[in-house]
Design a protein around this nucleic acid. Structure first.
Ligand SMILES: [Mn+2]
Ligand SMILES: [Mn+2]
Ligand SMILES: [Zn+2]
Ligand SMILES: [Zn+2]
Lengths: 154, 154
DNA sequence: GCTGTGATTGAGACTCGGTCTCATATATAC
DNA sequence: GTATATATGAGACCGAGTCTCAATCACAGC
């Protein structure tokens, strides 16, 4: 599942990113735009190493440092989010143009299943009121074993 | 909030840990038990560095390696859980003897508020059925700004 | 279009959380 | 008590991510 929103009247991610950079007094560069493009070229949960490899595969030699420098910008602009920390490094996904979703993770094979659920938004709202917090978001991960991995355990 | 369960007929964490180690063919050692004791001596979200400092403060010189080796055992035994990854390292809390809770985090001052909520358990159960997963747990974090930090932003 | 200037890039040094190695020490079974 | 397999500690090592600095480049102003 990767439900997309109706894109008809949305800005492109490139437009959003350019405006974000401009409004921060930062420059739009070929490196930053190539990274953005590559991030939106795949629908998956990736890490920086994979991203660099994909860029290389496109013939683009963008330095590690630039990729690492760009990730926080993509996150701050709201185009991308950190999904989870696994195997000693962070994993990301692009979110612009997609409905909010949570993750179900198999502890056996590490498969990830995405799901949407309104109840969590309710909880979020109520806790925000209770605690006088201005809520900006949430992350729900459910852990368990997929059917295949349950059978493997016998 | 750190709601405790009724401890009257519960095993102590030390008993649980000893049984866990025995059943894994591992040995109970003064180092492991001192680490366990220190972890249960404070109700907070700590990192390994803090834990080592606390042990030092008790006059105990347990090596970094031993502490790092013991953490996964505490997690695997269900006595402790990883709470979140922040500032480049993992944070933990002891959970044995405490009801499950989730975390509300202020992105301004990094204050953490714990809360309990039954709705998440419902979601967990339903998603497990839908996806044929055997669920073992979940982690819900809500992000936002506490009242003080909202005011600071003006 | 050209220029000037401050932002950006890339190479590689560096940091630091966490792991591994191996010699020494010790818990436990007999 | 002894044997032996497991655990510890010191420090080397690893790898994700950051920092430095010289060279490059985007873009505002002419
Ligand atoms: Mn996802
Ligand atoms: Mn907690
Ligand atoms: Zn699985
Ligand atoms: Zn705050």
């Amino acid at each position: 599942m990767r439900p997309s929103l109706n894109h008809s009247k949305m800005k492109s991610e490139l437009e959003v990113f350019r405006e974000f950079l401009e409004q921060k007094g930062m420059r739009s560069t070929p490196e930053r735009e190539a990274i953005l493009t590559e991030v939106f070229a795949h629908h998956d949960h990736f890490d920086v190493e994979e991203l660099i490899m994909r860029l290389r595969h496109q013939g683009l030699r963008i330095s590690r440092a630039s990729v690492y420098r760009t990730m926080p910008l993509l996150v701050e602009s709201g185009l991308v989010q950190e999904v989870f920390f696994e195997d000693g490094h962070m994993h990301y996904e692009h979110i612009y143009g997609h409905e909010h979703h949570c993750h179900l993770r198999c502890l056996g094979c590490r498969k990830i299943i995405e799901f949407r659920n309104g109840a969590v938004e309710e909880v979020e709202k109520r806790i925000g009121q209770d605690q006088q917090f201005e809520i900006t978001g949430h992350k729900l991960e459910i852990y368990g074993y997929c059917q295949a991995c349950q059978e493997k355990k016998d």
